[in-house]
Design a protein around this nucleic acid. Structure first.
Lengths: 223, 223
DNA sequence: ATTTGATTTAATGAATCAATTGAATGTTAT
DNA sequence: ATAACATTCAATTGATTCATTAAATCAAAT
């Protein structure tokens, strides 16, 4: 079996990658790193792990090629590995999204409203943006917003939304978005805005998908 | 953090899937199942595992949705889960293929010839097939061949190739293929045919990819 | 109903992985 | 140089995963 050795070697490598993704903490770290370069201490804080533990998981991710590092003074910054890692991650995400009906049920349950009506696709959003007939609302924490957001979006973190409704136009449709398709801020935001008499929908796949599909991302701070 | 719970639940599911793929034996089982329905005993034999062990890995794959089962008398047949699992598997395969240069090096090393020249893409093959200017050679074991092969291909398992060269035309280019991109039979076949004075190239991604991209697969036996 | 054959389940021990602690490394500022 | 800080490394312990064995299902044939 001249073939078997290499085939097996191949699959062994493959399995190693999969095993690296097979730990929630590492996935959470990846999610955070996907939002922008972060130092170890910050990542530990964000994911509620000890620093040593975080460091070890990061080493693991690095060995597998999912992340790369850069040193700046005392800090070591982690970023996503270059190129196609993102594709792998979104491939997995899409797989889960399309196949695990339990999760789908869970998501739609948690927001007890029929899902579809209030969704807007990336394509529709793009054409609506062209004709300026829509207000983009980013409900993520400011910290994530400044690292990158959809062009022209205004940032009102979900917790503040109720108090800052006056900043939103009542003559234009609002499209709210969040990190990814499973981030519930945008669900809750849309639900709230609609009960307050505003017309709001939710962007289908969120910011990460927007970025992953190569759309323009704005990084300047926006009052 | 209304969001965190669901996000985490989501990633936990995700991690479970990844962990399922994080074992060589399970990947090997998947490779075999991808070639067609198989009973447990057969899979155990093919992957050189004990029956009980095989069964447990299969249960694992089943729980995660990668495979489904069907009972026929005393046998229980395993097949790939319906739909998008294949996509996930090919996504992962492509990721590995494009990113792990060590493996690429390993593959090209093992066949110490420049890789590119003797490759033929699916697209080119399709147009060459239309004009009947090519002979397709399937070098996999007969067992795999009968379960499905490219239309019009002739089957000469690699071990027999040297003795059966006369069955090949010497006035037409030959395109050899094997299971997947890392199956070395086709590398070796092309190398041998070329040294024997025949004109041969290797199909880029092999049979599994052909099938996965929805091309016609022939299943009738071919002398 | 019993036997046979194919598969699954349960229980065990060995191997691997994860989290914690404390020490070690490397970098900047004093 | 030394002190202070961020990160990594090493050793320990507890938890999971894997393979093996033997026993338990479950369907077909006798």
């Amino acid at each position: 079996m001249v073939d078997t050795d290499i085939q097996t070697q191949m699959l062994t490598e493959f399995a190693e990658l999969a095993r690296t993704l097979g730990n929630v903490h590492r996935l959470i770290l990846l999610e955070h790193i996907a939002q922008g370069e972060r130092a170890v201490e910050r990542l530990a804080e964000l994911s509620a792990l000890s620093i040593a533990n975080t460091s070890q998981h990061l080493q693991h991710l690095k060995r597998a090629g999912f992340v790369e590092t850069r040193r700046e003074g005392k800090h070591i910054f982690y970023r996503l590995g270059s190129g196609p890692v993102l594709n792998l991650l979104t491939a997995l995400r899409h797989y889960v999204e399309h196949n695990r009906s339990e999760i789908r049920a869970l998501v739609t349950d948690s927001v007890n409203q029929p899902d579809r009506l209030e969704l807007i696709s990336r394509e529709e959003l793009l054409s609506r943006m062209k004709e300026d007939s829509v207000t983009l609302l980013d409900v993520r924490p400011e910290e994530e917003f400044v690292l990158g957001h959809l062009p022209g979006a205004i940032n009102i973190p979900f917790e503040e939304l109720e108090h800052r409704l006056s900043e939103l136009p009542d003559d234009q449709e609002i499209v709210a978005y969040c990190r990814g398709p499973y981030c519930v801020f945008s669900f809750d935001a849309v639900a709230m805005l609609n009960t307050k008499g505003l017309s709001a929908r939710r962007l289908k796949n969120g910011f990460l998908d927007w970025k992953a599909t190569g759309q323009i991302v704005e990084t300047a701070k926006q009052g």
